[in-house]
């Protein structure tokens, strides 16, 4: 999938990677799970299903993985975690699944479609996003609950909405949202377009949308952590490649990419 755009990306990241490797020096060179010995079994094409909030990071990671394993090809499918779980349970051909919460990974596991245990590879917390000019002058969560302020959150049925409710409770603030969206992307869209004065989204979304929104820290959000699990699926035709991708994401380089995107350590 990311062939056209991917090759340019791969080239760019390869340069960065090489520069990084040179800078880090010898001892680091053999580090990480992407060792040369495992390399010979790694090839073919795998399909990675990943949560929508991982779009930028996993696009980057896939390019880097392909760079490290020239015989391997990674196709990416991004959607909400519950969509991904449903697609896999209904038989979509996926080799790796990375969700934004344990619950949807659990659904796939309950359907008997995982052999091993999923590995937690990242965490995410909520942040208040406001338009760059912050028309409602919001500096804290209580500001977003003030009358007349248009605040948008995710609906309680989706992970970011459950997290938003937990943050509200922890902060003792009762937001009266003008809209409860089905996905964090829709919340962000309402803020970037300036329709909403504020929205509760993931920290990584604010980071990715830098320039179009401003992030405001909510102290209580630090206690409400979303954990992202990843797992290789057993039916995979290229099981070794799928496992290698999981190792890559949980390995040194993968973690560095995720950290740069604003994700927390698991």
């Amino acid at each position: 999938m990311p062939s056209n755009q991917g090759s340019a990306l791969a080239l760019a990241t390869a340069v960065v990677f090489l520069a990084g490797a040179c800078g880090a020096g010898g001892p680091d060179a053999g580090d990480g799970a992407v060792g040369g010995a495992a390399g010979e079994a790694i090839g073919g094409s795998i399909t990675v299903f990943a949560a929508a909030s991982l779009t930028a990071s996993f696009t980057d990671l896939a390019a880097r993985f392909e760079e490290a394993h020239p015989d391997a090809e990674v196709a990416l499918n991004f959607a909400g975690s519950s969509d991904l779980a449903i697609q896999i349970i209904e038989g979509a051909p996926a080799d790796v699944l990375a969700t934004a919460d344990a619950e949807n990974m659990g659904k796939v596991r309950d359907a008997g479609m995982l052999t091993g245990d999923p590995v937690d590879f990242a965490t995410n917390t909520l942040q208040l996003a406001v338009p760059p000019d912050n028309p409602a002058g919001i500096t804290s969560l209580p500001d977003a609950a003030a009358p007349g302020v248009k605040t948008v959150v995710c609906a309680g049925q989706v992970p970011c909405g459950a997290a938003a409710a937990a943050v509200e409770q922890a902060a003792g603030v009762d937001l009266e949202p003008v809209s409860e969206e089905s996905s964090v992307a829709d919340v962000l869209g309402k803020v970037t377009s300036g329709e909403a004065d504020a929205g509760l989204v993931y920290r990584t979304d604010v980071r990715a949308a830098a320039g179009t929104v401003r992030g405001i820290d909510v102290p209580e959000a630090a206690g409400v952590v979303n954990t992202y699990p990843i797992a290789a699926l057993p039916d995979s035709a290229d099981a070794a490649t799928a496992e290698a991708f999981v190792d890559f994401v949980t390995g040194t380089e993968g973690q560095a990419v995720l950290r740069a995107a604003g994700f927390g350590a698991p």
């Binding site: 949202p177 809209s179 409860e180 969206e181 829709d186 869209g189």
Partner: peptide, 11 residues
């Protein structure tokens, strides 16, 4: 979804 949002009873 894009224009009106999603709130029970309103949109």
């Amino acid at each position: 979804l894009t224009f009106a949002g999603s709130l029970e009873g309103t949109t």
